[in-house]
Simulated scan of single mutants.
Amino acid sequence: MPNSEYSAHPARILLLEDSVLDAELICEHLRQLHPEPEVRRATKKAEYLAALDDMEFDVILADFSLPDFDGMSALEIAHALVPDTPFIFVSGVLGEEAAIESFRRGATDYVLKQRMIRLAAAVERALAESRERAERKRVEQHRELLVRELSHRVKNTMAMVMSIVRRTAKGSFTVDEYVENLMGRLRAMADAHALLFETNWNEAALEDVIHRTIAAYIRSVERVIIGEAVPVTLDPRAAVAFSMVLNELATNALKYGALRHQDGRVFLNWSVAANEEGVPAVHFRWQEQDGPAITPPKSHGFGTTLITRTIEYELQGSVRLDFDQSGFVCDVIFPLRDPGCDDADGTPLSSGHVRDQEDLTH
């Protein structure tokens, strides 16, 4: 008795057989399979076509000769309608030439009615081969999806890199300043991508994004104090975008803000609450204290533009920058999930992500 472990679900078998006795004998041998298969019998062409139209089958068994039909025609129909379904001839008369021709046209196997003991094993083998083909096809489709997704992300990343390179150059006065600013921004992108890679490019914890980005700039991490915080995870697009914002905030704090002084501190906190549209959103605050006295800038540089545009375009949120004398404050609100985003990395299907990257810097 065949010992099949291929599935917990019974196989669905379409049996094309006009003889009642032969059909009963075939069903008796099929009962050796475990679990016992579900068999639907057709005796003529119209019933055969109706069965193929009604449901999907795992295997088709067909006699070679029928009163108003023939097995070769049934094979051709099956090959046209359900090409991936195994087709096995079960016939009392099937010469060598007919057998060779049936294989040439796509038959999986044939079993002589005089040797019906082979039937269960033949069906079991056909099911196993069919599952293997289906799994290979699924893996190949998944691979193609991953390649397309990777290509999409690389294109978006390169577009952002080119925009950052160009705009950083315009906002820098010396080569050293240009290199420093550019390397910081590219490092923030690389760190975010590395973090996402560790999570198999799924979601990343907001706190992990913060630690990874801040640690690249601030050796004394105790100067950045995380207060009120709730567990929040970001999708890949949001994680990369928010890391870019954090990079600009940290760079600004080191050059001009609280972290420029030894006693300066940065306090971070965030919560989740509904925004004005009633959508769950992250409310994030970056607050500097004990730094040098600051005054509002007369004009905004690329860093400020990058923060504002990233929050507005990439995160679909809002940002408020407060240059208070007691310390700089940045309040950010962005939805946890953009309802208009449908693809793997959150890119709106109605507009190109590459174009958004260009909008970020213009």
Rank of each mutant, 00 (worst) to 15 (best):
H34I: 08
A293R: 14
S271A: 08
M183P: 01
E312K: 15
R320Y: 01
L182Y: 04
I164H: 06
A50P: 05
V224A: 08
A190K: 11
G352T: 10
V179K: 05
N252Y: 03
A204L: 14
P83V: 06
F242Q: 07
E5F: 11
D322G: 03
I100K: 14
E17V: 03
L66K: 03
I100M: 13
A128K: 14
A281H: 07
W201S: 14
L360N: 15
P83F: 08
E276G: 07
D109M: 02
Q114V: 05
R320I: 03
L336R: 11
L33T: 06
A188G: 15
A126I: 05
E312Q: 15
V139Y: 04
V154D: 05
M116N: 08
A51F: 03
K45G: 00
A46L: 04
T310C: 13
V179W: 00
V179N: 08
G352Y: 00
V111F: 00
A120F: 07
D22S: 12
L49W: 02
A273G: 13
G71Y: 00
S130W: 01
R12Q: 11
G171D: 15
A215R: 15
L249H: 04
V139E: 15
A120R: 09
K44A: 11
A134E: 12
A344Q: 09
V245D: 08
I164W: 02
R260F: 00
L336F: 01
S102R: 02
H152Y: 08
L127W: 00
G106P: 11
M1A: 14
E203C: 08
